[in-house]
Amino acid sequence: ASQGENKQTNTCPDSSKVEEAAQIIQHFMEEFHMDLLSVTQALLKNSGEVEATSYYLHAGQRSDGCPVWSREDDLELQKDDEDARNKLIAKFGAENVARRVAFRKS
């Protein structure tokens, strides 16, 4: 049923990008006094956007006023259903939905 996850491409990420991301995670852990799990999950739910995650951890909300992504939203995103997609666009905006799709496939 959930074919969306299967469409992910299993490319090996660039090691310099991985190191860069690890440094940012560590920086957030120090800046916000949070553990690895909390910071990583915040990045996951903000579609891997560094500035948006930083703002969220600082302010408790996103700067664009949209909510962070939930598991249910991600499951809806996987459906090949126009109604579901339109509801997500109404909730997050077309740009955020497009970013989420790219993030899930990356």
Binding site: P13, D14, K17, A22, V50
Partner: peptide, 19 residues
């Protein structure tokens, strides 16, 4: 407006590196 974004596979590897 700069937007730095990491894909889920990069985050996964970074997490594994630190965990």
């Amino acid at each position: 407006r700069t937007v730095t974004t990491y894909g889920i596979s990069v985050l996964r590897e970074a997490f594994k590196m630190l965990s």
